[in-house]
Simulated scan of single mutants.
Amino acid sequence: MNKEEADENDFFKDMLIRDFCKSDLHDLLDVARLSFAPEFELTGFDVDRIKKLVNQAFGPIGRIFLGFSKIFGKERFKFFVAEVNSRVVGGTMVTKHGRIGYISTVMVHPAYRRKGIARRLMESALNYIHKRNMRRAVLHVVSTNVPAKNLYTKLGFKEFEKITYLVSDTDSLSELENIEGVQVRSFQKDDINAVYSLMKSSEDPKHLEILDFKKDDLKTPLITRVFHLFRESRMVALYHNKVIGYVQATYTTANEAGRIINIQVHPKMRGKGVEELLISSAINEIKKKIGVKKILGTASLKRPELIVAMERLGFKKHFELSGMFLETTCLKNM
């Protein structure tokens, strides 16, 4: 064994992958700032909001809620951290969406990269997904992040989609004229069947399959309502009283960008201004409620008409994400 291999072995002896605890927050916020600086420059990062969420989770109500969720197999998320010499130097989170384990915020402090920490975090996340009997692991990674993509590929992940991120200042959005016969209003509970049918007809079938999309996914999760993880504004577009469009926008505080996360328009109505009308209506709603300055939107590269619509409103492309997945049948040998 050479010196480099011996040093690596000693490093792994000192490294611990474990569950996040409240006292990790200071170190973890430092890692997040260093890991996602370009993204935070666009989206904002409200540290006070994060601290409030952690205090809620570790408070009396949070402990009871999360404790019972775990007991009854309803644990919604799991956060792992990497610790070296009593210092948190990395982390990642798994969020349960039905039978899917979504892996996000894989981060390692720059001073500790290329030492196998990201791989160990990913292996812990994948083992958790496997033990919880989830069907597959899914993640998104910035397309230009070659080291991360290489790691995920080595672990068995395969690409299934590409998404572009677009950003706009809310004050620079273009004004729109109404479309004859089209009405936009707030989403109502009675709309859920129509919106579900719309999603099935308008979204990429591969996307729905990989994410195991179900009608219940259109409902706001209980944990979101309990901890106020975010607020949302949902709108539908009607044409002759039939739902032909849907948009979901989320927001947190005025210090962070609002997000347009789901835009659907019936294939026969695309490219006629419905996309712009929905997006503009949702943005105006959250502007009135929270006063956000920036809006971040996502669009699949398979939806060029949606990208064009967003650019007409004043959005500009910033980076692309690759969606990747791994079936749990591939995890048994890990």
Rank of each mutant, 00 (worst) to 15 (best):
K131Y: 08
D212I: 06
L139S: 06
L176N: 00
M122H: 07
Y165S: 14
F230H: 15
A118D: 04
R136Q: 08
I223Y: 10
D171I: 04
L229S: 14
A137Y: 09
E203I: 03
Y165V: 14
L198M: 12
S201L: 12
T144I: 12
P147Q: 07
P221T: 13
I129T: 13
V138E: 11
L218I: 02
V167L: 09
D212H: 07
R234Y: 01
A125L: 11
P221C: 11
Y196T: 01
D171V: 06
E161S: 04
R119Q: 03
V138W: 05
E177W: 02
P147A: 03
T224N: 11
L229I: 11
P221F: 08
I117E: 05
T170M: 03
E203F: 12
I192T: 10
V195C: 03
R120Q: 12
V142P: 00
K158R: 11
V184H: 01
V182D: 11
E203K: 08
L238D: 08
F227S: 11
A137D: 05
A118T: 06
L155R: 07
M235K: 15
N145R: 04
F160S: 00
D169K: 10
M122L: 13
S201Y: 06
L198G: 07
I117W: 00
L121F: 10
I179C: 00
H140S: 15
I179R: 01
E161K: 09
V195D: 04
S233H: 07
L176S: 06
L126E: 12
N178H: 09
Y128T: 14
V138K: 09
V141D: 06
S197C: 02
L121P: 15
H140A: 15
N145K: 08
E175M: 05
A237N: 03
K158P: 02
H207L: 01
K206D: 05
R231E: 12
V167Y: 11
G181P: 00
R120C: 09
S197E: 07
F230S: 14
T220M: 13
S172M: 02
D190V: 08
R234I: 05
L211M: 14
V236I: 10
E232V: 14
L218P: 01
Q188T: 08
L166H: 00
Y196L: 03
V226K: 15
L222R: 02
R225C: 05
P221N: 15
V138M: 09
V184G: 08
M122W: 04
S186D: 08
K214Q: 02
V184M: 06
V146K: 08
R231W: 07
Q183V: 10
V167C: 03
P221M: 06
N127M: 02
K158W: 00
T220L: 13
F157W: 05
V167F: 01
R136S: 15
N127I: 12
M199E: 11
F160K: 01
V226I: 14
L121C: 10
I117N: 07
V182Y: 07
E159G: 00
T224V: 12
L238P: 00
H130L: 07
R119H: 03
A194M: 04
F160L: 00
R119T: 11
E209A: 09
G181R: 01
R234L: 01
E180D: 13
T164W: 02
S186A: 15
I223D: 10
H228T: 14
I210T: 00
D190W: 02
S186V: 06
R136L: 13
Y152R: 04
D191V: 15
N150Q: 12
K158H: 06
L173Y: 11
L198K: 13
G156C: 02
T153Q: 06
